[in-house]
Each structure stands twice: as C-alpha cells, then as structure tokens.
Design a protein around this nucleic acid. Sequence first.
DNA 1: CCCAACTAACTTGTATGACAAGGTATGTGA
DNA 2: TCACATACCTTGTCATACAAGTTAGTTGGG
Lengths: 110, 110
Amino acid sequence: MNDRTQLLKGTLEGCILQVIRGEEAYGYEISEKLRMAGFPAVSEGTIYPLLLRLEKNGLLTATYRDSPYGPRRKYYRLTELGEVALKDFYRQWRELVSCVDRLFAGNEGE
Amino acid sequence: MNDRTQLLKGTLEGCILQVIRGEEAYGYEISEKLRMAGFPAVSEGTIYPLLLRLEKNGLLTATYRDSPYGPRRKYYRLTELGEVALKDFYRQWRELVSCVDRLFAGNEGE
DNA sequence: CCCAACTAACTTGTATGACAAGGTATGTGA
DNA sequence: TCACATACCTTGTCATACAAGTTAGTTGGG
C-alpha cells in the first residue's frame, strides 16, 4: 500500500544537502553514502533529477571533473542558499519528529 | 520550494492510525487532535480522502452516529489489518529517523 | 579483439499523496 | 433570517520517488 517511498518524500532532499555539505560530492557517490547511512537503495531515477532540481533552484553548483574509473563526474557543492535550505530542512524535520513522538508517546513498546 | 507538505507524505497515514488506535474517532475530531499534537493545520482535503482510502483498504471500519452539534459523524475504528499497518508504520518511521539522525550526527547545533 | 562488469550521468513515464477550493448539509444563537 | 460552527465529501493540481531504459567511459578476461 504505502511503502517507504512515501515516507521519504521531502526527506531525501534535505539528506542529500547534508551529504554534500561536508565536502563536494557527485551523484553516484551520494547514492552510495546514503546507502551506507542505512537508507534503502535510493534509485538513480530519484537522485539525478533531484540534484538537477537543486542546481536549477540555486541550492547547488556543479563542476565536471574527470574520473580515473569511468566517465567524468559532476561534483556538487552547496551554495549559501543551499546552506539556508539545509538549516530550514533540519528545523522542520526535528519539528515533525517531535510531533510524531508526542503522538506515539506511551505505547511504543507494542 | 519544498514546504513541509512533502515531509508529511506517508507520515500522516500512520499518525491518523495512531490517533484512532486509542478509541474510535471521526474525521473532524482527528484533524483537531493532530493540530493539538502540533501538526500544522491538516486540511480536510487531505484527511477525508485519506480516511476513505484507509477504509477501502480494510485498515479502518466506520459507523455513522448522530452528533449533538451538527450533522452525523462517521466514527472510524482500527481493524486488525489496521493494527498491523500501524506497527509497520512505526517501525519504518523509527528506521527513517535513525538514518537521518546518523547523517546529521555531529553538527546539529549549527 | 570482444564482451562483461563497473562507473557515471541522464530521460521518460507512472503512481502516490497533500492540498486548495468548492459543495452539501445539520444545528445553534442573535 | 442569517451568520457561524460542525461535519463530510469531491475535483483538480502539484511535487516527488521510482522503474526502466539510454549513453558513455574504463578495466579485465577469454
């Protein structure tokens, strides 16, 4: 019915910003890192359009660089706008988490 | 850009199940309770279709009862399928939260 | 040399679900 | 009579996750 993909909506964008925040990263790498963090395999059909969108909206800038292993990589870096958006995301995320926690407080064990 | 509505995707369904779990409730009441819990005003255009969907999918059953204040209310109650779905939701929710937490661990203060 | 496998990015089409806007109807109080 | 709160529902729109497929570069094995 409603698999986890709906739960991910909106969350992924913020998480990707956070991955890039530390140091610039390219799409393929980002999807690996998310998988490491425990996210269930995020499809490429998800990640690349999302990155393009973020770039178009000015949250990311990109530069191409050659790869020693394959075609050139497109490295993304956060803009100032991206930093702001990341902070906004995290604030809203924490807010949502605390709402849900409040609702489930008292009977999580069951 | 991406307001909180995308963050809510999928979460709302589980939260509504949780609200109903304790005791049967009707739509109007549920939206009040969510607002109490801190959720930003959940629109009726969201809540009623969602309840109908859950009923159609067998997670909820409904009975109409008169109201002392207005038109009759449609009271929803969890089915066994609904209980299972609620548990599933909560498990997946906790999993997502811990993934995001892992990603943001170390620099939440900023 | 060719082919498989991995790396790397992108496109198209589909489904889901939140929401705005609007409609219908009942009860209360001024 | 009229405004307002209660109560439910429908239609249409938008954002976004994903499957599946496309294009390309590199490496290593047969």
